[in-house]
Amino acid sequence: MKVVRMFRRAVRAIVPPALFLGLTAYFGWNAMQGDHGIHAYHQQLQLREQALQAQRDANDEQIVWKRRVASLDERALNADMLDERARAMLNLARTGDLVIPYGPHDKLY
């Protein structure tokens, strides 16, 4: 009987602290490594920063494109420059134009 009583006392003395220590370790691990833990929070912060940087890049590109589109306005185009560029792209010349030939490796633009 004494052995059984000593065994019960030992179990009663060891099991509750071991159980609570296990629960504490479980919740501590989840607080650090879990889906909503500290490491996941830092990863979400990094993803947020990347998304904000992508948004800033997209806004910058949108500003550039808005400026380009605004420069396509009829009042913004110079007719002489447009004519010159069109002739250069189409490789055309007027009858009175002076044509200066370039070598095969020399580029006009």
Rank of each mutant, 00 (worst) to 15 (best):
L108Q: 10
W65H: 08
V4S: 10
A40W: 01
L92V: 13
L82S: 10
A10C: 01
N91F: 03
T24H: 08
N59V: 02
G28E: 01
F20K: 05
A13Q: 10
I38W: 14
V11N: 07
V64H: 00
I100A: 02
Q43V: 09
K107M: 11
R56H: 02
L77M: 12
R12K: 11
L108C: 05
L52E: 10
R75V: 01
Q43G: 13
Y102V: 00
L77Y: 03
Y26I: 05
Q53V: 02
Y26L: 12
A70Y: 07
A51G: 11
R56K: 04
Q44D: 12
D83Y: 05
R75F: 02
P17S: 10
E84C: 09
M1E: 07
A31G: 11
E49T: 11
W65M: 11
V3N: 03
N59S: 06
H42F: 07
P16M: 04
H36P: 01
I38E: 12
F27H: 06
A25P: 01
D60P: 00
F7T: 04
D35H: 04
R48Q: 15
L47M: 11
D57Q: 15
P104W: 09
H36A: 13
I14W: 00
W65Q: 14
M32T: 05
A10Y: 08
V15A: 08
P101C: 03
N30W: 13
I14A: 15
L77A: 11
G37C: 11
E74R: 08
M6D: 13
A70R: 10
G34T: 06
G37S: 13
Q55D: 02
Q55V: 00
R48D: 06
D35R: 12
Y26R: 03
A76W: 01
H39L: 11
K66H: 09
I100F: 02
I63H: 04
L52V: 10
M6F: 06
V4E: 13
K107T: 09
F20N: 06
Y109E: 14
A70F: 07
A76S: 15
L108D: 12
L92K: 13
K107S: 11
M6P: 00
V3W: 04
L82M: 09
R12T: 03
Q43Y: 08
H105M: 02
M89Q: 07
L47A: 15
T95W: 08
L72N: 13
M81F: 12
R85N: 12
N30I: 11
G96M: 09
M1P: 05
F27K: 09
A18C: 09
L90P: 00
H39I: 09
F20D: 06
N30D: 15
Q46S: 14
R75M: 05
E74M: 09
G103N: 01
A79G: 14
Q55A: 06
R94S: 05
A76Q: 15
L98W: 04
P17N: 03
A76I: 07
Q62M: 06
